[in-house]
Amino acid sequence: MIPFLTVFIKSVILILVLTLIVAYMVYLERKFLGWVQNRYGPNRAGPFGIFQSIADAVKLILKEEVFPEKRDRILYFIAPVITAVSAFIPFSLIPIGSKPVIADINTSLLFVLVIAGFSTYGIVLGGVSSGSKYPLFGGLRSAAQFLSFEIPFLLSITAVILQAETFSLKKIIESQHIPYIFPQFAGFLVFFLAGLADTGRIPFDLPEAESELVGGYNTEYSGIKFAWFFLGEYAHLILISSLIVVLYLGGGNAYFIPLPSFLVFLIKIAFVIFIFYWIRTSLPRVRFDQLMKFSWKFLIPLSFLNLIVVSIFKVVL
């Protein structure tokens, strides 16, 4: 009974902390966007607008929900939940600092990938179940985008598994005497770009392109259900950043600098997320055919090349 209770309490704390982090990620993102675009950003709620995210959350929770008439009742309800839950569960296995937060299993990398992959289901189902055409297009785009970027995504991870000879995230970190970004820079590039597409952020935010599809898959969602989608999306962004840190940047290893490992881990994640924001402010959205071409004609060959080079080195050395 006691282990169950500790796991339960740890999970609740993890979810609350993640939600808080998401709230302030959004605030910092808006401040950063404001700074880049030479305006103030949120500055009304509290000093420097630091309560803006809290105010937004309260607004979303209290808001009246509007339902489309042609919705599919079960799927419409379940879709935002899938998106949020599938983004939260993998964090129980991510080794923040030296060991994972809640559980440690041998095949943790596979588990994380499997659960994180379900977020697409949330988006696709949200698009289909709304019973209206713009969300349907959003879901359609999301499915196509996921399918074409999942291949280079997994291939670049395969190269890491080959070099580390393990599926455990903890052991992958331990095996990085030099961060894998140096021996596998091509793999890192592929993983980073495919991860960017996987989180559906600019320049790959086709599923929710506001100027083309109103709001994409979440057009018909309002109030708390919209908040679930939003939360899931940002948690997914943190998840992809922490995977980048674990697989390519050496996790909590500080190498020469004497700092506690969880702090190093958090700093690295913050840096990766900052780069995501930076890309968002700098680049326009790609066209859909450009997106497909980019994945099939550039990322997939590059990831195959990376895999072959890594295997040759593995055999020779």
């Binding site: 299993i105 041998n106 095949t107 596979l110 588990f111 990938l113 499997v114 992959g117 379900f118 697409t120 289901y121 696709v124 698009g127 289909v128 349907l136 879901g139 359609l140 499915a143 196509a144 996921f146 399918l147 999942e150 997994l154 599926f167």
Partner: peptide
């Protein structure tokens, strides 16, 4: 475990999404 996770990754994460895509198309 490996077989189980791979099954979900490939079939639930790949093939069924492809089927959904075709139905939506």
């Amino acid at each position: 475990e490996f077989l189980g996770w791979t099954q979900i990754l490939l079939y639930v994460g790949g093939i069924v999404v492809l089927i959904l895509f075709v139905i939506m198309l």
